[in-house]
Write a protein that binds this DNA or RNA. Structure first.
Lengths: 210, 210
DNA sequence: CTTATGGCTTGATATATATCAAAATTAACA
DNA sequence: TGTTAATTTTGATATATATCAAGCCATAAG
């Protein structure tokens, strides 16, 4: 553990809107978010963007860069955030000496694969309101794990960014939020969100017309 | 290399329709496809399915299982296929001794992450015909790498499976194929596909109304 | 060779979401 | 702190894709 600490260096503070890495940047390190909130996004040749994830404190980003020694997405701070850098080749070196660390790295990489595949399921088979419910429940769980309220939190991203992540236009996101509110499942006012009925939201995930 | 060969064992032949692993199966190994064609899919609680990928000879599957020691998707043979098994903990052991092998594994895991994120882009931001063009061009490239014709090949999957992968209904897939054919970009008759104009298909990827 | 079954295509119609537009609200900044 | 710019909501309408339905084709089984 001491040796891992030795590896990790405080990379610094990223102000709201600033960029941790860009697509095309040389890959050298993974980043552990200490505090704050990021989004990752990829851009098409023709300028279309897709938000591929929202990352919060305790999560690791940058794994996309390993495959080609260059990052394939942008990572942007959605609020002032503190980040630690984990030089990747040194992490690999250390992993060779410490099997549990090696295993841990593999699990983190695989967890990202599983997460991505669940987003595919969401994008490929769910209706707008279901996608939103799934998204809110996912945020809720992740806040809960960190000791924050699972039922009351701030959205760190715009409706446009939520829409980009969920494959919807921002108007659709807004309407779906309004509708969940009418259904008494949530309270939403700007970026503050309150979940009134977790089980109701869960039920909402299972509704298919599509 | 000899030691890697030592690790890998021929797992056997999987007949068309048979299952290499199922969601929930204990994770013990990665699988290298020697010959043939697979699909991987996840299933919702409520029975909805999402095809998460199509894998061909030379590709590795099973990486989803590392994170929780259990597979999170099903892998199904789409034609008679031959598979090799790579016991994962032994692969990790060997990776600790052979840094290039370790690095190779990390690249493979990361490549899957990048692939998945590009599918997110497809599902989140492309129109039906674009998705199909992207899909066909991806198959084309992968066949080319393997020394097969990039412009003439057999589709190994049904319209339904293509639709599940692309987030479309099978009728939409069928119509989009017909339309690409009318546009003289492809010839398609059942499962045989011929690409008449690679650059035309590429241009088709960039068309947005959405 | 014949029949049956699953897969595919095409048409008509329905529907979910996108698009366009305007106003209201909030946040950023000078 | 006033002013501007960005974000959000909501409505009206357009459109892409889903749904429903029927017939056709191809492959597999008897």
């Amino acid at each position: 553990m001491a040796r891992l600490d030795d590896l990790i260096t405080r990379k610094g503070v990223y102000r709201h809107g600033s960029i941790l890495y860009r697509s095309g940047d040389k890959f050298q390190a993974l980043y552990a978010i200490r505090t704050g909130f990021f989004k990752t996004q990829i851009l098409n040749e023709d300028g279309r963007e897709q938000v591929t994830g929202f990352q919060m404190a305790g999560e690791i980003i940058g794994m996309d860069g390993i495959s080609s020694d260059a990052h394939t997405c942008d990572a942007v701070a959605l609020e002032d955030s503190e980040v630690c850098e984990i030089p990747f080749s040194r992490l690999e070196d250390l992993g060779r000496e410490l099997p549990p660390l090696q295993r841990h790295l593999h699990r983190i990489l695989s967890r990202e694969i599983v997460r991505d595949q669940n987003v595919m399921l969401l994008l490929g088979s769910m209706r707008a309101e279901e996608r939103l419910a799934t998204f809110l429940l996912n945020l809720s769980q992740r806040f809960a794990v960190r000791g924050y309220s699972p039922t009351s939190f701030q959205l760190r991203m715009t409706r446009h960014e939520i829409g980009s992540y969920l494959g919807l236009k921002l108007e659709t996101v807004s309407r779906a939020l309004s509708h969940l509110q009418e259904s008494k499942l949530i309270n939403v006012r700007n970026r503050s969100l309150e979940i009134l009925c977790l089980s109701g939201l869960q039920a909402c995930m299972g509704k298919r017309t599509r």
